[in-house]
Design a protein around this nucleic acid. Structure first.
Length: 162
DNA sequence: GCCAACGTTGGC
DNA sequence: GCCAACGTTGGC
């Protein structure tokens, strides 16, 4: 039996990698490398599954905002950039035989015509409990089905599908 | 650019 | 195992 679809919020600095970059990527798909936080790693390794929904969040942006939606197309597997000395995210402590860091693949699903900004999210009572709005620096965050549905409604009529 | 929040490191 | 020092994140 297929597991129930789960929802996530992935943060990315648009200066580094934006939803437009995802849209332009081959097959509109990329591997989500470089996560170097254990809690986020645990999610990527153990919980993020094919078919899960991802809110693509632009952090360190003006304004910070949910820019669109992606879909998980490959579940957790070792982050090979941790083994690459020349990579910015190289981690000598990650052993290829017992990798410390994991990543997943995501494919572009939708870019919001109008991103949903952080101030807008903060106004929503239904989103009060969102991890994002509770002082979390987590780069991979769980999103509840209720939150996902609420955000989907907020962006209605202003989105284009991929 | 500032700084609060939080994670990691390392001496003891 | 405590905790101070330090580094990073990310909103403002």
């Amino acid at each position: 039996m297929a597991a129930r679809k789960q929802y996530w919020l992935f943060k990315s600095e648009p200066e580094v990698f934006s939803i437009h970059d995802l849209e332009k990527a081959p097959k509109k798909t990329v591997f989500w490398d470089g996560v170097r936080n254990y809690q986020a790693r645990n999610s990527l390794r153990d919980q993020v599954k094919v078919g899960d929904g991802v809110l693509f969040y632009h952090s360190n942006a003006d304004p910070p905002a949910i820019a669109g939606i992606a879909e998980v197309v490959k579940g957790g597997y070792p982050d090979q950039t941790a083994f690459d000395k020349s990579d910015h995210h190289y981690d000598p402590k990650s052993d290829p035989k017992n990798p410390t860091w994991y990543m997943v693949d995501v494919r572009h699903a939708e870019t919001f015509v109008k991103p949903i900004t952080l101030p807008e999210l903060k106004k929503e009572r239904a989103l009060k409990e969102m991890v994002l709005l509770n002082n979390s620096r987590l780069s991979i965050q769980p999103v509840t089905e209720q939150e996902w549905t609420h955000i989907a409604k907020m962006r209605k009529q202003t989105a284009t599908r991929s």
